[in-house]
Amino acid sequence: MATYIIRRILIVIPTLLAVSILSFTFVRLIPGDPATVMLGERASPADVEKFKEQMGLNQPIYVQYIRYIEQVLQGNLGTSIITRVPVMDQLAYRLPATIEAIFFALLIGIFVGVVTGIIAALNRNTIIDTMANLVALTGVSIPIFWLALIMIYFFAVNLKIVPPGGRIAAEITVDRITGFYLIDTLLMGRLDYFVSAIRHMILPAVVLSTTVMPQIMRLTRTSMLEVLRADYIRTARAKGLRQGSVIFKHTLRNALLPVITVIGLQIGSLLGGAILTENAFSWAGMGSWFYGAISARDYPVLQTAIMFNAIIFVVMTMLVDISYAFIDPRIRYK
């Protein structure tokens, strides 16, 4: 078991190294360079040269790469070419915002997905099942930025029941303690601020949850159906257990195992969804940060973005693999 886990962890290192080399090269292969993008209409070729030299963009790419890795190992992710603020500082601002959004999106996604999945499975091949499947399919196919806009117009502009964007009312300045508004507002002792933060959280979290909800729902349904056919469920029913007990104690617990592993992998798609969702809700998190960095060719930020996503993916896959080893003993002996 321990060998399996260690081996699995060690494999992460070459994977990340490969990702870093590829992303470093590809980012710099995008046509257009930050110097001209940043200096704009007014730049003379001499200005552009000077800028490139200052930013070290003139050196051979492998030299730039080695310098970059050296810095990263010292915990320095470089400085944004555009804002001249250390990437690490920006990360400290952005990461909590995204974690908050993803956390709530995941909560909503899991809750709604699992519940509708169960309902669909229990009502297999009825109109309820078809409806749930239809909604899930629609959820998968709707572009998230479009859904965001529709939700903003309906709930914020027309009904005015939730705010259209931002993390908290514009008049409120939250003290920077943890970076998590929901925690910091409470630490400040301001319930009204907390409520404002919650209200701002609703739309983005709901929209973002649609990236994971359909998969969770469909998987819960399939998995439930499979377990419901199992012998031990028949036994449970045969010994006279109540329906609730059969469903929640015996079926759901077993059915949820594959769902849980999939949720781990879904964090990756949540990060992808966050780019568009955060942009649509002017949510100052990782997603909107990366989005801006792409158009500005802000290499250090872009590089961090790719590495960040890669790390999340690799680590999540690793955790899922390891969890398999716990769940299914056959794996660890291979």
Partner: peptide, 20 residues
């Protein structure tokens, strides 16, 4: 004065229409 950054044109329009 509060200067708010709202990069997306549609979102900015929506916020403006929502009265924020």
């Amino acid at each position: 004065i509060i200067w708010r950054s709202i990069p997306d044109n549609n979102t900015r329009l929506a916020e403006f229409q929502a009265g924020t």
